[in-house]
């Protein structure tokens, strides 16, 4: 504990730990269910594989109120600009989980119609493989993301590449530095 002279009612911690604790324990996902993976994402949020115990059962429809975009399903050529627009509308800090093999790499659909990996359009933090990934796999991915938020790796990554990955130059300010 911090101050020895004051025996009770004080707890001290590092500010960045508190901030990270707050951020990881109430991540609000944005609804971006596209195809079959969306059903498994809904199953993860449902009663049996409860996401509410991680503070995440509130799927915000509006991207402005969401922290996490779980791209669940195959992204077609027509959908890619919509995906980017929704991602841009989210407020920092924001994270992206690419759920399923279709979002991660195009999956079994290696053809003209599907974007071969959603990281061509948005920067991805965690890739969850599976076709579709069962709820346990998705939760493992989400907990990996929580771990990354807890150790603060993400903010360091963003500082390193001001475009936030994906090689797209948006002319954005670099993220806040943390020590």
């Amino acid at each position: 504990m911090g101050l020895d002279q004051v025996p009770h009612n004080f707890v001290t911690a590092r500010l960045e730990d508190l901030v990270r604790w707050g951020r990881r324990n109430s991540v609000f996902p944005a609804t971006f269910g596209l195809a079959c993976c969306a059903l498994e994402m809904m199953a993860t949020g449902a009663a049996h594989y409860d996401l509410a115990r991680f503070g995440m059962e509130v799927f915000r429809a509006s991207p402005r109120q969401a922290d996490l975009m779980i791209v669940a399903g195959r992204v077609s050529q027509k959908m890619a600009p919509v995906l980017r627009q929704v991602y841009d509308q989210m407020v920092e800090p924001k994270w992206v989980i690419s759920m399923g093999v279709c979002a991660s790499s195009g999956g079994m659909f290696n053809n003209y119609a599907i974007v071969q990996g959603v990281d061509q359009v948005v920067p991805v933090d965690v890739y969850v493989p599976g076709c579709p990934p069962g709820p346990e796999t998705l939760m493992h991915g989400i907990l990996t993301l929580h771990e990354q938020i807890r150790t603060g790796e993400l903010l360091r990554r963003r500082e390193a590449s001001p475009t936030g990955g994906a090689g797209i130059d948006l002319g954005r300010e670099p993220a806040l530095t943390t020590s």
Binding site: M79, F109, Y112
Partner: peptide
Amino acid sequence: GYLHTGMEKTGEELTYVQGTTNVTRMDY
């Protein structure tokens, strides 16, 4: 058209044994 996956084109490239893996993802 926002979920157009080219499954019919993919179906022409997969054998009959593999075809069901493609088709099963239509009405998921």
